[in-house]
Design a protein around this nucleic acid. Structure first.
Lengths: 229, 229
DNA sequence: CGCGAATTTGATCGACATCAAGTACCGTGG
DNA sequence: CCACGGTACTTGATGTCGATCAAATTCGCG
């Protein structure tokens, strides 16, 4: 797994500014000099870790984007989450990764040994609480997403997705999506055609404005928010 | 919320035997005399806590069954989990409950103050780890369930459900379901008619045997498991 | 035993999937 | 800088699985 592109090493905490919607997941590693963080880069579609592999490291996206997913035997895929700049992923309480993580675009991550994080948690209750809070945050997202996957219509799913991405990665009111329509579909439990049609329809209705398939400007967030609920 | 049926108080840990599939969630409260547990009973369809309410207590099912769900504005419901004897539920890292919990049948729970659990976690790293592990267990379930809701067919969903219930509450090879077809449907992201038809079909095929709608004996677990994957 | 709720079963519908082109976009190399 | 090729995206036509509508029938409980 580690025979990837150029690796750089850093022993100082990451103080880059996460994107607007990133949960405050920096700072976890501050004040613990025994936590050595390594930077590492992956190319587009490269695997960061696979389902069932031992969870040796915890990761934070420095730049780029990552998808975490599970597969059925016939290849159907469910993406559970997208991880964007600032997000921590790959944190497990158990011994294994239960989803596969892949770089969506060229991506740099920081990684720390899971064992050293656990050691820090043993000596510092605040670290232990932070680990719990991060897992709880993932659970909250999963609960929201179960409602979407089980009960929302296609239009509601796309609306929810657009609002999520707007919150998490919009700059100057513009969303620059790193992922394909297929990734979005596998996140929303739809087909790529349905995603495409729905985005086109929103474009026609003036709810959003496209400048290229991956550059989206939301023009009526209220409308999206009320469709959603 | 607390003006419910007869309440009994116990200050000793619960040592009842959880049902076969219950994760070992007893024992959390052992060895911490400051953790006072109260027993409380709810009638069928009674609300235990609601979405958005402050999370003051953590609960463990002593007997009965509980559903946790979220609603859309038009009444569509997604049940995120069923909680059976031995299961802990209502544990939050944040200040609010994010799902509503209701008794499915007459149910007795033990409850401890969330604040006292947090205090115990601050003084005992093992308790903190256990809290984290419980939230991580819920996350694991949610990840499995996202795959089901996003990508599995109706037959696969029902097969997964039957295997889950077999693991969690089968005694002498027989599953005694506490929940209605409607609850099952809202858990699986289907309609109650589709659940009913699929169970009937499995019955016709000899994969299972019904003795009353809620009494199910699995006759071919391998078949169910391979449909599922 | 009888009532109301839960379940089953049937007929039909519709939202989204699937199949199938056509078009736009982007990176690469000439 | 532009031509080219491949991938991503869009759009259209049709199909299908599960939803919806509508009765029976059964079950559980007082």
């Amino acid at each position: 797994m580690l025979n990837q592109s150029h690796a750089a090493v850093s022993i100082r905490p990451y103080w880059g500014q996460p994107l607007p919607g990133a949960s405050d997941q920096s700072g976890l590693l501050a004040g613990h000099p025994e936590l050595v963080a390594t930077e590492f880069s992956y190319g587009r579609d490269e695997c960061i870790f696979g389902e069932g592999e031992p969870s040796e490291y915890v990761y934070q996206v420095v730049s780029g984007a990552v998808r975490s997913y599970r597969l059925l035997s016939d290849g159907r895929r469910q993406i559970g989450a997208f991880h964007l700049a600032g997000d921590v992923f790959g944190l497990e309480s158990g011994p294994m990764h239960r989803l596969t993580a892949e770089a969506i675009v060229a991506t740099t991550v920081r990684m720390v040994k899971r064992r050293s994080l656990e050691a820090a948690a043993k000596s510092d209750v605040n670290v232990a609480c932070k680990l719990w809070a991060m897992t709880a945050g993932e659970l909250r997202h999963a609960e929201d997403h179960m409602l979407l996957l089980g009960r929302k219509t296609a239009a509601q799913r796309v609306a929810t997705f657009l609002l999520e991405m707007d919150r998490r990665l919009a700059v100057t009111g513009q969303i620059a999506l790193p992922m394909t329509r297929c990734d979005i579909a596998d996140y929303l439990g739809l087909t790529l055609e349905t995603v495409s049609r729905t985005v086109s329809q929103f474009n026609d209705e003036g709810v959003l404005a496209l400048s290229g398939a991956r550059q989206i400007r939301l023009r009526d967030r209220n409308r999206l928010a009320e469709m959603d609920s």
